[in-house]
Design a protein around this nucleic acid. Structure first.
Lengths: 219, 219
DNA sequence: TTTTTCAATACTGTATACAATATAATGAAA
DNA sequence: TTTCATTATATTGTATACAGTATTGAAAAA
């Protein structure tokens, strides 16, 4: 694990809470490395928008407002739906197989769920992302892919899965199946629209819950 | 000027040609700085996709194929048209004024053009970008803005403005005016579509000319 | 008390030396 | 002559010292 990954994880999981100030020296000591790799990590995280400079005295972990979250999800919807539409045109049989497998894994993980732990949630989240990635890969468009990967990962949002009811999780499997079928049928517009809607459902789910329960580190 | 900006400019202007290999030490010597700021610059340029690692022995300036150019312009069209549609909804009077001023400056620069030098072309290009930026600013969406800023860099390498005829330049002023009017009228879809088309014209212009005259550093 | 000036300090920014490592070159074995 | 193992070398990765600078705090002036 690089310093970059460690710090990023600490932010995403909420170990470094929003608004927390970080200095190079402090991080270097915590991770038992020199300031050099820490500086590198900070620069990168800054460019990703996860931290922001704090008047030449280190950085602070960025706080995301409801507006930020809405804008980020809308951007995701824009990019991912575009890529999905392209995937419906460019995909080959091998990629169809990969996507089917990806969604199968996702479905399995959900069906086996019972009294989920934080680790289970993370695993589900990861399998969901893996399915999405397989869809984008089928678009054969490196540039769109890069932009999708750069869309800000909002801290603590992985917990959205924690808030899903069993019914909602099963609906998300169905959404994946709809997307996949449209891609198989080369119905580009339909695949695109289905992905768009799928992400909007996720967005609204998150927005509904951040109101109820503020995103904090306590779990 | 930071090391980052110097190297980036050298790539955009073609001083460092596509395929050229660069090492930290070499760059450090050329720019009369130590390897530290060079490393920082390289990391950033790598993340922007302008250079790619060359088997742990420095980096090479990335080469872009016709497919890359098409994909990048399509992505630009997607993001910029989205932002333009949002701008038509979110804009305020001050921003309208800024956009008008921006396009006025662009028009002036073109009308005064006569036997243009490379500097003139660069100035026009910059004024065009300035107008576009003012449109995106009116969208009040930092996240989309960040993505747009990342996608407009590569097209700079291909110097679209160098090949524009006077007639085409005047057409681009008109396109800006159409976009601006739609934003003023809060006609979101129309503004979006006009921007989309404007960028597609730019794309096709570039694609047409990369075949004719190879893009080299001699200028 | 409020504002201004100045010094202290808490940092970041840069240079440099050295460690680690992948690649290239060399020579030995097949 | 080709393949494999070994050494040399080019180059990145990391630690560290010191330079530079904005911010803070303290003292002096208003």
């Amino acid at each position: 694990m690089t310093a970059y990954q460690i710090i990023k994880d600490a932010i995403i999981t909420g170990k470094y809470q929003q608004g927390k100030r970080l200095t190079e020296e402090e991080l270097a000591e915590q991770l038992h490395v020199s300031r050099t790799p820490i500086r590198e990590a900070i620069k990168q995280l800054e460019s990703e928008g996860l931290i922001i400079p704090f008047r030449k005295r280190g950085v602070i972990v960025r706080e995301f407002t409801e507006t930020d979250i809405r804008q980020i999800y809308n951007l995701r919807a824009l990019l991912e739906s575009y890529a999905t539409g392209e995937a419906a045109i460019q995909r080959n049989e091998e990629e169809i197989f990969q996507m089917e497998q990806g969604n199968h894994d996702y479905e399995q993980a959900i069906r086996l769920l019972n009294n989920p732990t934080l680790g289970d949630i993370e695993s589900i989240q990861q399998k969901n992302q893996s399915f999405h990635s397989k869809v984008f890969a089928a678009a054969h468009n490196e540039h769109v892919m890069n932009h999708i990967e750069r869309v800000v990962v909002v801290p603590l949002i992985f917990r959205a899965f924690y808030w899903y009811s069993e019914k909602q999780l099963i609906q998300s499997i169905e959404a994946h199946k709809t997307i996949l079928q449209a891609i198989k049928d080369r119905e580009s517009d339909r695949a695109k629209a289905a992905m768009h809607e799928h992400i909007y459902l996720g967005r609204d789910h998150v927005l509904k819950h951040i109101g109820e329960k503020k995103l904090t580190a306590e779990f």
